[in-house]
Design a binder for these strands. Structure first.
Lengths: 345, 345
DNA sequence: TATTTTTTTGGGAACATTCCCAATATTGGC
DNA sequence: GCCAATATTGGGAATGTTCCCAAAAAAATA
């Protein structure tokens, strides 16, 4: 089916396509009457500009790619919305991709985004990603890249993260202050920078408070919940089991909570549990889950702003920025009995 | 910054751009050696095809727009993933838009998708949408449109829904069978076809079981949770309050649950509650929420398949399909005490 | 009215690719 | 070694737009 073009309009009006083009854009050099006639006919003919042709000649698409590893949990959609709103203010559209935690899909998506000539990329990589060549290609071609949440520390690009180290430190210190001595950590894979940082925070909090680091109590896993179940049971079966668990994220913590319930353990008396990310579910279950909360909306907004800033800066003058947003500890019933929710920043 | 083009490759190899083009695509008429040389140089020069130019000349983008009203809740992301996987099998990419429940944003998004020449559209409209002109434009231009979940019944296009009427009927009948006599309904806005269908199911279930329809017990609202809170309190303050509540969706039902707890009511004894959609949270809270479950993944898959089918059919021969997927009632503690989860189809 | 200035318009290259058709090179049969 | 058949290559139009530059028209000035 034929789509109306500026040439159709030009022909019907007996004027040149240049004039139609000017009338349709905000160009000043058109007679007001001519513009009026063009606009009316365009409306009548259902004219829609062809962004492909425009992007081809102007060499910019006004489109930003956002790639996330998944978007079932509340976290990534919220970040996307934050970024999208920020970008929309400057007239940018957004293509959302999810890599499904698959390195291969991530590479394929990166290729597709490159092919559709996005003006920039906002990305959180998969847990499988060890090689970042596919993102470096963007850099080489002068297309701004901003990482968030799961960042590539080796690449010299802007990124936004939360203070994973301090969040973890604070969480573990809270457990220590409430009397726990054997604190386990279900960590994420060491491919993720945030996972590594949380692990460091856990370790340093123990050391700073004179507690030993027992390797038996630290398990790094691939965030597959079925395995979380197994590992929690393993920890609780130890001859000298933990009295507290700090989990990489809320889903893991919730899984631990369910395991504890199943084994007839009392939370927080027999096992205190802390998560990370303040999933909406965490405040609704019984007991409420103590967790490290992140400013999710701001994460997205900042990512958007970083990209916009880079987009309006000369390549030579550009210096990458690394933004770290603060976390806060939300204390609920999974660590302190009969406690109404409390926030500790 | 200059991006490598087939002309660059052609020049460096001393051959024509036609040959390079053939080598880069799956075209048979190229010498194997030539193809090899082209592929190697392309790799070396970081060549990425320019999808804009390709789409411009081939007049198809292999891109499908998916527009949803929001994607914080688990529902829409899951549908998107289902559709995306189906479309990916046939080599289609996806642009995801969310209208943020705003009619204006929806219209703007539709324009942008039209401008970027998507090959098709999968959409669930906002709760504000009464005028569907912006979607009819797609139809007029021969671009396939598939509605899901929130459909426009007035448009002659394919759509996928769940059996809202029967889901609601079954839910209300379950409440009646467990002895409830005054069943309230917190309905959605009447702009949504699924909201209207659920309301009808509610009404007919009451009538079929010889119960009166009390207009006092039916409240239609805009799905803004803050208002749900107010309305639930209003219902419970009635001189003759309801003994059960059927809510338009799970978030509404959860809000009701929280209100009931706050007022010291026992659920399900004082107030039984049923939701719609089986949100992941619903099985985790205490008591578990009885709810109408929908085959969410299948919704997305079917939407994708419908679109693909239309894409490969002549416009003249095409006949819209309307698929209705079955729902099932999941019975939990919010309607039956001490009941382990049970599914009734 | 003639000339200059300003406003408005038109022509055509450029963007990166596909694809048709013609031209050239290679191969096979005799 | 010649001719036909086949394989491979090149040339150039076409896609829908922007944008520069020149041309034409209109308005302002003398």
């Amino acid at each position: 089916m034929h789509q109306t073009t500026i040439i159709d309009i030009a022909r019907q009006l007996g004027i040149s396509k240049s004039t139609v083009s000017r009338a349709l854009t905000a160009h000043p050099n058109v007679n007001a009457k001519t513009r009026q006639r063009v606009l009316e006919l365009a409306e009548k003919l259902d004219y829609q500009r062809n962004q492909l042709a425009i992007s081809l000649v102007t060499n910019q698409t006004h489109t930003i790619g956002i790639m996330v590893p998944e978007f079932i949990s509340f976290f990534f959609p919220k970040v996307i919305i934050g970024a999208q709103e920020e970008l929309a203010k400057s007239g940018y559209n957004v293509i959302i991709c999810h890599s499904n935690e698959s390195y291969e899909t991530e590479v394929a998506n990166a290729k597709a985004l490159l092919a559709s000539r996005v003006d920039g990329l906002i990305v959180s990589h998969t847990k499988e990603t060890r090689n970042f060549d596919h993102f470096m290609t963007f850099q080489r071609k002068g297309i701004p890249v901003v990482f968030f949440n799961r960042v590539c520390e080796a690449m010299n690009v802007s990124n936004v993260t939360v203070d994973d180290y301090n969040g973890a430190f604070q969480a573990v210190e809270h457990l220590i202050q409430t009397g726990r001595k054997r604190i386990a950590h279900l960590a994420g894979p060491d491919t993720l920078a945030n996972s590594r940082n949380r692990l460091n925070g856990y370790r340093d909090a123990l050391t700073a408070n004179g507690l030993p680091i027992d390797p038996e109590l630290v398990i790094a896993y691939d965030l597959n919940l079925a395995k979380a179940n197994i590992y929690v049971n393993h920890l609780l079966n130890l001859p000298n089991p933990p009295d507290a668990l700090f989990a990489m994220n809320d889903p893991t913590a919730l899984e631990a909570l369910s395991v504890a319930k199943h084994r007839g353990l009392s939370v927080p008396d027999d096992l205190a549990i802390v998560g990370f990310s303040d999933d909406p579910i965490s405040s609704l279950i019984e007991p409420g889950l103590t967790t490290v909360s992140q400013p999710v909306d701001e994460l997205g907004q900042q990512a958007g702003q970083l990209l916009l800033r880079q987009l309006s800066t000369n390549d030579e003058e550009f210096v990458p920025e690394r933004i770290v947003l603060p976390t806060s500890l939300i204390i609920r019933g999974s660590t302190v009995k009969n406690r109404q929710e409390m926030i500790q920043s």
